[in-house]
């Protein structure tokens, strides 16, 4: 509790600052610009990485949910038996727990499904196209093994395809894409930390004489460090804020989600997700705070 209070007090002191202490460190143009630019560029990239991660997550969830709730039964039978077998399958499905609805896909619809591959003038009646039955599950789902056994026994020409074979790799790909997005955010954070650490070390080394004077007059390490840490934290906060603003505008200008565009046009934020990027400057400032604190401790120890 005491430690928490100390951290809170430190945070408040960091935000409020000490104008006198801030003046003690001379302005350093190069490191200031480097830190602000690095934080801005990284925040800009983080906006896209976050968008990628969120879009991948949405895609994985949609594929997982939508495909998991639908199955297809394929009936390969001679033309004269096809209608009877279709009827038999629909009867079985009506009696199967967990099946919300089932319908035989008409020939016109089957032709439309094949049209992208075979063209519009497909003579469906001359091809051995199987009859398809679309099965929509209830949220509880049905027992695919039990259904398969029953179909094998009663309608030997019917084959159940619950999409497991091709759904799994798609969902896995989307999930991995989401992980890649999150990993990118982590790498961006680590790179930001590395850049700010280097800039802070350069600033501290360049101000070795200032540090020597401050120590000579009785300044404690915490006081000296705070003057640098606050400066770098605020630079990172402002830089990341600018980067996020540009990133959000860029994402907003992306084409909106369309069925035809698929995944790429869905690479944006939806609903309350637009709020998430606003956390990036705060995280950037946090990264700068930790990185500069560590650098200041190390440099001050070496400058004894």
């Amino acid at each position: 509790m005491t430690r928490l209070r100390a951290i809170l007090a430190e945070g408040v002191a960091l935000v409020i600052g000490d104008p006198q202490a801030d003046r003690l460190v001379p302005p350093t143009g190069f490191t200031a610009r480097l830190t602000t630019f690095a934080a801005g560029a990284m925040a800009f990239l983080a906006v896209f990485a976050l968008a990628l991660s969120l879009a991948s997550g949405r895609l994985a969830a949609r594929w997982s949910e939508e495909l998991a709730r639908s199955s297809t039964i394929r009936i390969s039978a001679p033309a004269e038996e096809r209608a009877a077998q279709t009827e038999a399958v629909l009867r079985i499905l009506q009696a199967t727990p967990g099946v919300a609805q089932a319908r035989a896909i008409p020939a016109e619809e089957a032709a439309a499904l094949l049209e992208p591959w075979f063209g519009p003038n497909l003579p469906l009646d001359t091809l051995p196209v199987p009859q398809l039955i679309e099965v929509v599950e209830e949220s509880t789902g049905f027992d695919p093994q039990g259904l398969r056994l029953r179909l094998t026994a009663e309608v030997p020409g019917a084959v159940l395809d619950d999409h497991t074979r091709w759904r799994a790799p798609l969902v896995q790909a989307a999930s991995r894409l989401r992980i890649l997005g999150l990993l990118s955010i982590l790498l961006i954070g680590a790179t930001t930390a590395a850049m700010i650490t280097l800039a802070a070390q350069a600033a501290l080394a360049a101000n070795a004489q200032v540090i020597a004077v401050l120590r000579l007059v009785g300044a404690q390490d915490g006081y000296i460090a705070q003057a640098f840490v606050r400066r770098f934290t605020l630079r990172a906060l402002s830089g990341a804020g600018i980067g996020v603003a540009f990133g959000l505008v860029a994402v907003w200008l992306l084409p909106s989600a369309q069925e035809a565009g698929g995944f790429l046009t869905g690479l944006g934020y939806r609903g309350w997700h637009w709020v998430l990027p606003l956390v990036i400057p705060v995280l950037g400032a946090g990264v700068a705070f930790v990185a500069t604190s560590a650098a200041a401790r190390r440099v001050l120890r070496e400058l004894t």
Partner: peptide, 16 residues
């Protein structure tokens, strides 16, 4: 501290 005035430099121990 060259960027501060003489008065600020003299007051430095009080500041820190």
């Amino acid at each position: 501290l060259d960027h501060l005035s003489v008065a600020d430099n003299v007051a430095l121990p009080l500041t820190v």
